[in-house]
Design a binder for these strands. Structure first.
Length: 661
RNA sequence: GGCGAUGUAGCUCAGGUGGUUAGAGCGGGCGUUUCAUACGCGCUAGGUCGGUGGUUCGAGUCCACCCAUCGCCA
């Protein structure tokens, strides 16, 4: 009973550089595949790159490179990113590989043999960014693509079509028979309602560019990028082009028990509708599940090039370590929901859960109690003679193991970690109530050994349950409790279920703490290094830089406006805040008994001495807030555009403290 | 506009088939321990469960309408 397990990430478009959105998908796939391996299942984890398309062809030209040269260059950062993140993929598919191209053509022929491919004329608006046609009513005013906000092009071409319309009912039947085919459930509803509207035949070839897979027997045409891209999941294993000589294809596709495509919600349609339709037509089995996860914002803002908050994973790995970042990804947001990547939350979870929770649990028992009182050896205890409180912790471990496993199988990583941390917490409580340090003083060695053993064994269980998420840290933990690194083996289920796997007598190791705490100054310096300024207030939304004309929905009531106490103030002192790029510390006279201290993020645009004596407009009733350790009692208004930032003032010397309305 | 979802403590969220004082984590407050990474543990949030009206002996949990937010609509 081998139960092969196959998981894929999307193939990322090489036009981008890797960012945390990519990293999030890839880590999730790595975690489930590591889990499957721990359970003794043969597993295959595929990621890769989408390297074809008009956009690539054009970018390469702009860079003065041949397309292949361009994609080769762009591929390297992805490989590096996954290595840095500990994502142990088995396959890395590139759509420019011969094996892939052969399989795309094989798929084409299979669909053609089925009679699902025909030639016809096609004319419509085309967005290069999307690589897809747009209907008239989708477009924004001025014929702009609704996604890219760029002009679309009118393209008329002869094109091959796929009889997608024939698959409306078969797809609906499939969703009905496999209600788990699309996850989360809400997404399945979207897919179903889309299909129920009736499917139109799909244009599956282009003649407008060359950079792609040629259509068999008609090289004027290039295969539609999505047909090309989707086939990666099969071609990477050998696919029908190598039928009979592709053991991976036999095992992980044709005979696989589980095939999960992890995708972003934006590409769900292609995976949940087109892809299964193509496969049905070609007579190839379907994947078992398409899992659409949500999007990550960055510190509350949508990640985009124009906002300059495009977050690559590399610097985060350098700052926190791969396992910590992986943990954060899996812990912070429910898989399937949108979430936020916030440096602040990462630090809070790190200190609160990893350092204080798990790290400290290990440290207090291994580096202190066991080391000082048991000579650093795993004690040998009679497991049948334990106290009730020990049994309770053991029961907790067992229920945790079961629940965490179920949650990971459902890709509910956050719930798995949530229940695992309940066990961490129970173990800390257990140490508190058994008070092993007192047992040591009382020379109650038998009881002391029982308590230590129970905690050490709990740590051993944790080292397995957390392994899929934090493989490196778990092996470090195992080393400290005298266990060898975890080596998943096919047909051997390593998931913890039997108590007592420690090796009595083994020497424990006390290295550095697993997760050393960040104190306040370390937090500041990490954030500084990563270029993160803590927000001056709780409002996450920064004003948009452009196109910020208020729309109908953005009106506020007059009363809302009057809540803001705007006043004129004179700047008396100004100096740079040490260690901050952006902040200036201002002392202003706002017509009050005491001058105010205000921190303003304008250092990159104003020299301190130029500001002294200027009248500015401040928000006087903003809740005071600490920035870089200094309290800011208000906010200076400034306007910004592409050329920088300009502080708002008044055009005569109005009395300080005058209110602005 | 059509279809679907969501709206629960300061924040992030749990709350099958309706039933005693509505929960967790984080943050805040108070206390306590000293084995530990100034860490752990205990206590503490008086929240009109978006609003209104209904069904019911009884609704966060069912129904209707309304409001807000979000997703999908080739």
């Amino acid at each position: 009973m081998a139960r092969p397990f196959y998981v894929t990430t999307p193939i990322y478009y090489v036009n981008d550089r890797p960012h945390i959105g990519h990293a999030y998908s890839t880590v999730a796939a790595d975690v489930v595949s590591r889990y499957a391996r721990l359970r003794g299942r043969p597993a295959y984890f595929l990621t890769g790159l989408d390297e074809h398309g008009l956009k690539i062809e054009r970018r390469a030209k702009e860079e003065g490179l041949a397309p292949q040269e361009f994609v080769d260059r762009m591929a390297a950062p992805f490989r590096l990113a996954w290595e840095e993140l500990g994502c142990a993929h088995d396959g890395f598919i590139r759509t420019t590989s011969p094996q892939h191209r052969e399989n795309v053509q094989a798929l084409w022929k299979l669909m053609q043999d089925r009679g699902d491919v025909y030639l016809d004329d096609y004319e419509d608006w085309y967005c290069v960014g999307c690589e897809s046609f747009k209907t008239e009513k989708e477009l924004l005013e001025g014929n702009l693509c609704p996604i890219h906000q760029k002009p679309v092009e009118r393209i008329k071409e002869r094109s091959y079509f796929f009889r997608l319309s024939n698959y409306t009912q078969p797809l609906l039947d499939h969703y009905e028979a496999h209600p788990d085919f699309v996850q989360p459930e809400a997404r399945l509803n979207e897919v179903k309602s889309f299909v129920k509207e009736g499917l139109r035949d799909l244009s599956i070839s282009r003649t407008s560019f060359r950079w792609g897979v040629p259509v068999p027997d008609d090289p004027e045409h290039v295969v539609y990028v999505w047909l090309d891209a989707l086939m990666n999941y099969v071609s990477a294993l050998g696919g029908p082009a190598q039928e009979g000589e592709a053991p991976l294809y036999d095992e992980f596709w044709q005979a696989s028990e589980t095939i999960i495509h992890i995708v972003g919600k934006d590409i769900l349609r292609f995976h949940a509708i087109y892809w299964p339709a193509f496969l049905m037509s070609a007579g190839i089995r379907l994947p078992t599940q398409v899992w659409a996860h949500g999007w990550l914002t960055v510190n509350g803002e949508k990640m985009s090039k124009s906002l300059g908050n495009f977050l690559p994973p590399g610097p985060l790995v350098d700052a926190f370590g791969a396992d910590v970042l992986r943990y954060y990804f899996m812990r912070e947001v429910g898989f399937g929901q949108d979430g936020d990547f916030s440096h602040r939350n990462l630090l809070n979870r790190y200190n609160g859960e990893l350092a204080n929770g798990l790290g400290n649990l290990m440290n207090r028992i291994v580096a202190s109690i066991v080391k000082k009182n048991l000579g650093g050896r795993v004690p040998n205890v009679d497991l049948d003679a334990l106290d009730e409180i020990d049994q309770q912790l053991i029961e907790k471990a067992k229920s945790t193991s079961q629940r965490a496993g179920q949650h990971i199988e459902a890709l509910a990583f956050h719930r798995a970690l949530d229940s695992i941390w309940e066990l961490v917490s129970s173990a800390n409580k257990y140490v508190d109530s058994t008070e092993p340090w007192k047992l040591a003083k009382q020379d109650d060695t038998t009881r002391l050994e029982q308590v230590c053993y129970t905690v050490l064994e709990t740590l051993r269980w944790l080292s397995i349950m957390l392994f899929p998420v934090m493989p490196e840290k778990c092996n470090e933990l195992r080393e400290q409790i005298g266990m060898p690194p975890l080596l998943p083996t096919e047909q051997v289920d390593l998931w913890p279920n039997a108590w007592g796997g420690l090796r009595p007598g083994t020497q424990t190791q006390t290295a550095t703490p697993l997760f050393p705490r960040f104190d306040e100054s370390q937090e500041r310096s990490v954030l500084e290094r990563l270029g993160v300024e803590e927000a001056p207030d709780d409002k996450k939304k920064a004003p948009a830089m452009t196109d910020s004309a208020p729309s109908q929905d953005d009106f506020i009531e007059f009363d809302d406006f009057t809540k803001v106490d705007l006043r004129v103030a004179v700047i008396k002192e100004a100096e740079k805040v040490e260690k901050s790029k952006k902040l200036l510390r201002l002392i202003v006279d706002a017509g009050e008994a005491e001058p105010r201290q205000i921190l303003a993020g304008i250092s990159e645009h104003y020299a301190p001495e130029d500001l002294i004596g200027r009248r500015v407009v401040i928000v006087a009733n903003l809740k005071p807030r600490k920035l870089m350790g200094l309290e800011s009692q208000g906010m200076v208004l400034a306007a910004s555009d592409d050329n920088g930032l300009s502080v708002l003032g008044v055009d005569r010397d109005v009395e300080p403290g005058s209110s602005a309305k």
